[in-house]
């Protein structure tokens, strides 16, 4: 099999397109690169969607956490504490077991039967956990940023008669994003790193459709040689990290475009590797 044929057969194996049977013997470097790269689709899927949905929930929770009413701030504090204070690995296990407790036949809501079987599948269940998890981490970052908005900015807004919702959309939210962006970039990077945990934490890989690390682990188990597949995963993730950083840097430049260049906050990679 030439490398091009291998690529055609396995490039989309992780989403069920192409050759069904995984390679069993005579593993080539090309096979490993193709299959592990194909698994990366899942990492990007989990990371991108969790980040997208999480962004909105995180903004809401950050606002709730800085609200004066304890009816809003206490639940938000607990949400953040539970998801930041416990390992993501345990959260995955717990969610999987909890979702399995749902009745298999479906739940009756006002006479309409709601199917529940799909919730235990990784694409839904794990995405949900990652979404809540990244919301909690990002909410903490946004909350910190909300608290460090310069007092003068808010007073100036009020002096101009900008209050309420308008003050939030025009002053608070853009400043919050600008201040939070360097930390939020790190959060995004480590969220992508965390997606590798999904298929090692209870969620089964349906028809061997797994993520990059799942396939790397498959090759390492078959060949007893960890020195090829894991460095390939590492290579892919370094590329992904660089891509992500450049994207977030572009946003950062836009958020800081009104400031003199010596005042902009640079994005630095900070350790926050495991959740």
């Amino acid at each position: 099999m030439t490398c091009w044929e291998t690529f055609n057969a396995y490039a989309f194996r992780s989403i069920g397109i192409g050759e069904n049977l995984l390679p069993k013997s005579d593993f080539t470097l090309c096979q490993q690169f193709t299959l592990i790269g194909s698994g990366l689709i899942w990492n990007v899927y989990f990371g991108a969607l969790a980040l997208l949905f999480g962004f909105f929930l995180a903004t809401g929770i950050a606002l709730a956490k800085s609200a004066r009413s304890p009816w809003l701030s206490k639940p938000a504090e607990w949400f953040v504490f539970i998801f930041r204070g416990s390992p993501l690995f345990i959260q995955f296990f717990l969610a999987y077991e909890a979702l399995q407790m749902l009745p298999k036949a479906g739940i009756d809501v006002f006479g309409i039967s709601v199917d529940t079987a799909w919730t235990t599948r990784a694409w839904a269940g794990a995405l949900f956990v990652l979404f809540l998890n990244t919301s909690a981490y990002a909410a903490e970052i946004f909350h910190g940023a909300l608290r460090s908005i310069p007092k003068g900015d808010l007073e100036a807004a009020e002096a101009y008669g900008i209050t309420g919702w308008q003050k939030f959309t025009r002053i608070q939210w853009p400043t919050m994003l600008r201040l939070a962006w360097p930390s939020y970039t790190n959060e995004a990077i480590f969220l992508f790193h965390a997606t590798t945990l999904v298929f090692f934490s209870g969620f089964p890989a349906f028809r061997q459709m797994g993520d990059a690390l799942y396939y790397a682990n498959y090759f390492a188990d078959k060949t007893f040689n960890p020195f090829v597949p894991y460095p390939i995963v590492a290579f892919y993730f370094i590329c992904l990290t660089l891509l992500l950083t450049s994207g977030f840097n572009a946003v950062n430049r836009r958020l800081n475009r009104h400031l003199p260049s010596n005042q902009t906050s640079r994005i630095r990679l900070r350790p926050n590797l495991i959740r």
């Binding site: 690390l213 790397a216 370094i238 590797l273």
Partner: peptide, 16 residues
């Protein structure tokens, strides 16, 4: 070590 998911290291180093 910072650029790569830690779990890759965990799986790799134990065998390596």
């Amino acid at each position: 070590v910072r650029g790569v998911p830690d779990i890759v290291f965990f799986l790799f180093f134990v065998i390596a």
